[in-house]
Computed example of a mutant assay.
Amino acid sequence: MINKDNSEIIFFSDPAENRTHPFYNKQIVFTGALSTMTRSEAAKQVKAYGGYLQGAVTQQTDFVVLGDKRRGISAKQYKAEQLINQGQDIQILIEDDFLWLISIPREMDK
């Protein structure tokens, strides 16, 4: 929705409604360009489900989403794989898996 001054208004569902969604209260990192949406649009989706966007992979990262428009293994993917090998619980998702997860209805608790 666009308001009078041409700025975008974003309506988020109540994150409390999304407590059972896999992204709820999770740290998500994107690497590589997504083929179906901009990174900004993807970030809005993550936030709408109660998740948080990170710029870099850390021990607190829960998901790394690999965009379809990537070339080879990115530094973020490499770092995530290193942390996984050290026992960290990080899930690496391809873009199609991310799209499937954000297609889950938001009112799962109702």
Score class of each variant (00 low, 15 high):
residue 53 L to P: 01
residue 100 W to K: 15
residue 29 V to K: 02
residue 42 A to F: 02
residue 86 Q to G: 09
residue 54 Q to L: 14
residue 46 V to R: 01
residue 20 T to R: 11
residue 101 L to N: 12
residue 86 Q to N: 14
residue 47 K to Q: 15
residue 15 P to A: 07
residue 71 R to N: 13
residue 73 I to E: 14
residue 71 R to H: 12
residue 32 G to T: 03
residue 88 Q to A: 15
residue 25 N to Y: 03
residue 97 D to G: 07
residue 76 K to P: 10
residue 41 E to K: 07
residue 92 I to C: 09
residue 43 A to L: 07
residue 76 K to M: 12
residue 15 P to K: 01
residue 15 P to G: 08
residue 101 L to M: 15
residue 106 R to I: 05
residue 88 Q to S: 15
residue 84 I to T: 00
residue 95 E to H: 05
residue 99 L to C: 14
residue 75 A to P: 03
residue 49 Y to A: 08
residue 45 Q to N: 13
residue 47 K to D: 04
residue 64 V to W: 02
residue 89 D to G: 01
residue 17 E to P: 00
residue 35 S to W: 04
residue 97 D to M: 11
residue 64 V to T: 07
residue 76 K to T: 10
residue 95 E to P: 06
residue 69 K to A: 10
residue 96 D to I: 08
residue 55 G to W: 05
residue 35 S to F: 05
residue 48 A to F: 05
residue 85 N to H: 03
residue 99 L to Y: 13
residue 30 F to P: 06
residue 95 E to C: 10
residue 18 N to W: 01
residue 60 Q to S: 13
residue 22 P to I: 11
residue 104 I to W: 08
residue 78 Y to I: 10
residue 96 D to E: 15
residue 21 H to T: 06
residue 68 D to M: 10
residue 21 H to L: 09
residue 77 Q to V: 09
residue 44 K to W: 02
residue 104 I to A: 06
residue 19 R to T: 14
residue 54 Q to C: 12
residue 60 Q to P: 00
residue 99 L to K: 15
residue 87 G to T: 08
residue 84 I to M: 03
residue 63 F to R: 00
residue 105 P to G: 01
residue 100 W to D: 15
residue 71 R to T: 13
residue 34 L to N: 08
residue 55 G to D: 11
residue 19 R to P: 03
residue 29 V to Y: 04
residue 43 A to H: 05
residue 31 T to W: 02
residue 78 Y to S: 14
residue 46 V to C: 07
residue 56 A to P: 00
residue 107 E to Y: 05
residue 37 M to S: 04
residue 58 T to E: 03
residue 96 D to C: 05
residue 84 I to V: 08
residue 56 A to R: 08
residue 82 Q to T: 04
residue 51 G to N: 11
residue 83 L to T: 00
residue 52 Y to D: 10
residue 40 S to I: 09
residue 66 L to M: 13
residue 81 E to L: 11
residue 77 Q to L: 15
residue 70 R to M: 15
residue 91 Q to P: 04
residue 83 L to P: 00
residue 56 A to G: 02
residue 99 L to G: 10
residue 76 K to E: 12
residue 41 E to Y: 01
residue 25 N to T: 01
residue 38 T to A: 01
residue 35 S to N: 12
residue 63 F to G: 01
residue 22 P to H: 03
residue 29 V to M: 09
residue 108 M to E: 14
residue 91 Q to Y: 07
